[in-house]
Design a binder for these strands. Structure first.
Length: 106
DNA sequence: TTGTTGACGCTCA
DNA sequence: CTGAGCGCCAACA
């Protein structure tokens, strides 16, 4: 059960108004190739406490690939917009400016 | 137990 | 630019 917890831990450390990618998290945890598992872990994130700001995690291009898995109340776009992250057409605008790398910043 | 799937990422044509 | 294919690995039918 370590992987999921590690993922949650990292995600919970993402500052407001910042985002990161599945690959970056996977890399931070030691294996960039397991990026798919990060998505799976975040799937579980809905039922853990405290809540994990999974909306701050997007794919490496800044697209909200996982938006469809969010309940309408917590749509990634809304939550991100609330934090000052501009999202257009399901993609984070100027993703580079918001990117937060757990490798270097944690 | 085996086969498929997927909130990814990278490479090649 | 678009599409196809591959590696990875846990969950699930």
């Amino acid at each position: 059960m370590g992987f999921n917890e590690d993922v949650f831990d990292v995600v919970r450390n993402i500052p407001d108004g910042r985002v990161t990618s599945y690959g970056a998290i996977a890399k931070c945890l030691g294996d960039v190739r397991s990026s798919r598992r990060v998505g799976w872990a975040l799937n579980q994130s809905f039922k853990v406490s405290p809540l994990v700001p999974a909306h701050r995690v997007v794919n490496r291009l800044g697209m909200l690939s996982g938006a469809i898995h969010f309940p309408p109340q917590r749509s990634m776009e809304d939550e991100l917009a609330k934090e000052g992250v501009i999202v257009k057409d399901g993609q984070v605008v100027t993703f580079d400016r918001y990117f937060w790398d757990p490798m270097t910043e944690l």
